[in-house]
Design a protein around this nucleic acid. Structure first.
Lengths: 186, 186
DNA sequence: GTCTATAATTTGATAGAC
DNA sequence: GTCTATCAAATTATAGAC
């Protein structure tokens, strides 16, 4: 999926706002104002808000995958790949002070158009699958469990860190995921 | 803080909707419709929506503390107290299919009135402090770190479990928190 | 405490010209 | 692709009667 310059700019503005304040806080009027155009023009690119929401999550998930592949190197150990994964979340929080889009939308999923919440579900599922395969290579006794807890740690700690303005919460989560104790057998 | 019957009912309805779809998805009109009264009447109890939001989080946090104290027994070991804490979250998710109110509001905190987001912050901070004291009694090497990761696990896994309609994510998080490996030294 | 009436604003959305 | 013009609906909120 590729977008025009205008469509990309719409998605850029919408993404920032949505990651700060949620789906319902994003309005065509505000986006258009930031772009210096009229809100009616946005409907040319995304006829319904639902279309904008779906495109946003799809682009976000694709960009996440792209970035992950670019940051990975051929000779990386499973543990290094895990670290790269965690770093993607860390960069978003520390450099851009933004929570994961899917954490925000996931929290209000029952109020979203189904097409949007389905994309969020796909993002979580793909992340869990990717993490499971990494933990599997690390010979963790229960890779699926490790993957689910690791993703929960990242998403949950982002939220608490942002609210409390305390990055130590995220760092504690990231450290735990990368610690030996995390994937050691019980 | 105590509320009249009407105020309590308003808060009840608002809480369910907010935990499903977020702050902006709650409207005076919808609440009034469910109560069989007019939306203007709600302003007698909560003049501004911000007041409703603040009252909601305060009541939620107080009810959480009350329930925790009631569920705890005098002879409980630290480990049993931890289990009781986790059970509060588990009950909300499994029995009522609701995410923690503060997880939802925390995710969109940057778009909330400051008085509301401050209450969310207080809830998180108090939970971390309570958990820290429990982990401290368990002789965990870093109780603060354990508390922050435990809360992150609970909040994050609730969101993912709800979106994916897969309670195994929450169970994996709960199991990890209560496992020996979680609070073992690295 | 609840009502009627009303206001001001915002919002998503459409039709049709350029 | 963007504009003007317009709309219907929703939303928060207030004033004043009952």
């Amino acid at each position: 999926m590729s977008y025009s310059d205008s469509a990309s700019q719409i998605l850029d503005i919408a993404e920032v706002r949505m990651r700060q304040a949620g789906y319902n806080a994003v309005s065509y009027r505000d986006i258009a104002a930031q772009m210096g155009i009229k809100s009616a023009s946005l409907h040319y690119h995304f006829p319904k808000k639902e279309d904008l929401g779906v495109a946003l999550v799809q682009r976000y998930a694709a960009a996440f995958q792209d970035r992950l592949l670019k940051d990975l190197s051929d000779g990386d150990t499973p543990r290094e790949r895990l670290s790269t994964f965690v770093n993607l979340y860390e960069t978003a929080l520390l450099d851009h002070q933004l929570i994961c889009l899917c954490a925000v939308l996931g929290a209000e999923a029952q109020g979203l158009p189904r097409r949007v919440s389905r994309e969020v579900q796909i993002f979580f599922t793909q992340n869990i699958e990717w993490l499971t395969s990494v933990f599997d290579e690390m010979s963790v006794s229960n890779p699926d469990r490790a993957a689910k807890t690791a993703l929960s740690l990242l998403e949950g700690s982002m939220i608490i860190s942002a609210v409390n303005a305390d990055n130590s919460v995220f760092k504690a989560a990231a450290d735990l995921i990368l610690s030996r104790g995390f994937y050691r057998n019980d």
